[in-house]
Amino acid sequence: MSMSRRQRTRTVRGVQYGVLALVVAAVAFGANWGEIRRAFFDLDVAQAQFPDIITTALVNTVVYTLLGFGFGLALGLILALMRLSSVPPYRWLAIGYIEFFRGVPALLVFIALGFGVPIAFQVVINQYVTVMLALGLVGAAYMAETIRAGIQAVPKGQVEAARSLGMSQGRAMRSIVIPQAFRIVLPPLTNELILLTKDSSLVYLLGLSLGQYELAKFGRDALNENRSLTPILVAGLCYLIITLPLGHLVRRLEARTAKAR
């Protein structure tokens, strides 16, 4: 039995839709919708999360993320410059740092900073400082590599033009190279901000007071209180409120960069 190409295409597509329909039907009939609705879509529970989930948890998530991002960006820039230094020990230090903090889970860094450092040194660190350090130390390792790539992507002629105007190496770096490098790495840095937003959920490890709750911790507490998964879903949607616009921004920035080339 031989089929024409058109028949074969039609048959293959028919099989694909058939499988999809079967899966949907299985889920639709097999799932316990009442249970799922009660667990995930309990409107009373969902409404009870507001406004605190926005005014406290969402705000805290943003604050923690920005603290970590700001510190990580500054440290990442320093590491990137060290990585490109002509002095070998600076390069070794930067490479060692980057490899270490890219390689270990952020969770460990949080535990080390949240519990290890206070116990070992008998100090009390402000919670916001701990968050800033923990998120920033890990983020810096990733951002350093991104920024280094951006600096190296600035054409050599830019430095030559700056130097031939009498600028020192450092001045050329500050006024000419770094501003252009940041334009180049804006999309990947925004991606880094998205990752940090999610990593900020690790703050729960530090044992927070109610006013310091961020989205994940807030959702988890409400989960225990209500015996419903709805708060987790609401918290998840709140993350999307932050990350979806950022993702959209990344795509626009990338399109702009592509056009400029």
Binding site: A162, S164, I176
Partner: peptide, 30 residues
């Protein structure tokens, strides 16, 4: 070097600065 003007084949203007800012940045910083 500030006493020597240099013009390149590929111009090497600073793309993140306007034409006038290209002219003022070294005057101010150097």
């Amino acid at each position: 070097r500030r006493r020597i003007g240099m013009v390149f084949q590929s111009f090497n203007l600073f793309p993140h600065l306007s034409a006038l800012d290209n002219l003022t940045i070294a005057q101010r910083r150097v």
